[in-house]
Design a protein around this nucleic acid. Sequence first.
DNA 1: CTCGATTGTCTAGCGGTGCTAGGATCCATC
DNA 2: GATGGATCCTAGCACCGCTAGACAATCGAG
Lengths: 192, 192
Amino acid sequence: MSVQERKQRERAERERLIVATARELAEQQGWDAVTTRLLAERIEYSQPVLYSHFRGKREIIGAVAIDGATEMAAAVRAAASGAHGPRERVAALANAYLDFAVRNPAVYDAMFQLDGGLAFARDDTPEPLKDAFAALKESLGAVAGDGVDPGLFTEVFWAALHGVATLTRAGRLPPGDTARRVELLVDRLAVP
Amino acid sequence: MSVQERKQRERAERERLIVATARELAEQQGWDAVTTRLLAERIEYSQPVLYSHFRGKREIIGAVAIDGATEMAAAVRAAASGAHGPRERVAALANAYLDFAVRNPAVYDAMFQLDGGLAFARDDTPEPLKDAFAALKESLGAVAGDGVDPGLFTEVFWAALHGVATLTRAGRLPPGDTARRVELLVDRLAVP
DNA sequence: CTCGATTGTCTAGCGGTGCTAGGATCCATC
DNA sequence: GATGGATCCTAGCACCGCTAGACAATCGAG
């Protein structure tokens, strides 16, 4: 039995290695550079090994996305917990969110831009994704205002942050004014 | 001279055909299906002909994006001009924007999601792109509020719309509540 | 009207992609 | 130590964006 357990452990270890390497490669050279050949070479196995862990490249992206969601949830909660008052919490959250997107562009893309084969906003949505949304809702729900559904408010605020994050990184918005944009967003959207 | 002019005209005609076919193909089967081979077959020329008009696939995407920007600017202006009062204009604009994104997903992707090799938010930005932003600004600038730069406000409002559009279509936001989201956005962001 | 030059187009192919079939190799078990 | 199943790799498929070079059509000069 112990032998099987060891093999299982090693297999799980290798799977983590694949995901970590894919993420590293994507952050360094972009997702286009994450080819199955290069990824296989980096983990020092042949291509087919990747397919014994994942159905395809799409699932590898999905795995990176789930890892990222866990981290983002933690980052957002940490930022929120360090601020006093609902409004300050929201401002801290917004900055933490955008900071995460800037620091981990490839992971952010995996989560929200690329097709990782994941289900969103459904019952069978992976737990880390639900939890990341929950982390936003914890702070944002408090400033939704009377008569406004906290879930809906969270979605709208999140969408605004997402828009700022993606348009800025894609060069559609001039960089540098992010702080002022966040300020405006928080001022207007969050009810005191 | 007339012969050259005719040739030039036919060449321009073919270029329009390429862009229109690429757009049609992308809307029908997604941008992944827009391969140079299939595109060439559809226009009934060989692949290299595409490269005598465009530097590569990226530039074809860019051409579709520019076409789309012109149409979006018109759609937004039409919607805004049919509404009374600043706040109603903004609501009409927001709905027109999201409607455009839903009706022309491939074009929307070409404009804001894919790499079309275009410059944004710069001096050498193609005129139609500048004009699309200007169309937004015309209506949005009026509700920016005192002490808020109209350009900055337009960017933020646009980013929020973009977030709603992309997250909804990517399945990240449950569809169906778009109207309520727009309502919330307009209520909070637009100053009476 | 002929004939070289230019222009336009196509065939064929390069190096890359994601993915997989089938054979070789390793190793726990009998 | 033999054996059978799990594990892994080599080789290759069909496709991608893109391009070199052959070929045909057209133009302009003599």
